[in-house]
Amino acid sequence: MTVLFLILAALTLTGAAAAMTLRRLVHCALALTVAFAGLATLYLALDAQFAGLAQLLVYVGAIAILIVFAILLTPGSSEKDTPVGGSSSLVGVALALGTFAVIAWAVSKSKLGHPGLISAAPEATMQQIGTALIEHYVLPLEVIGLMLTAALIGAAILAMKESQTPR
């Protein structure tokens, strides 16, 4: 556990907490982008270059922009404070805390971190990942391509104006 890890983890968690607590939606989107970028750097710190760069491209590049678009396309919701209050939000926070307590208890009880398990940095070049995708994971790759196409067409149809459809 290094200083770098502590800084990156603090950045990611602060960004995530800010995204879930700030009042204005645009600020939330910005904080969410910080959290996604922090996660990408955490992947890079774990020697997963491809996953880190994919995270940067997809989340920081695409999903953050998509969320900003959605905020700007739904005016009124971006200006209004969304204060959380009442018993339902207390229940939500209590559930989240309970979930964290259970996971942390399970992690601390497990024998995962014994020193023999920790190896040197594994080799995962782009070439190896590409070969694995083409040789072992061809079918999932094709399925994911089909699913992305279907999802994008579906999203476009959903967001289209409904002027032609009979009511």
Partner: peptide
Amino acid sequence: ALLFSIGLAGALT
């Protein structure tokens, strides 16, 4: 686990 809990709290509240 912390990140998951933050996301869960946000999604619920």
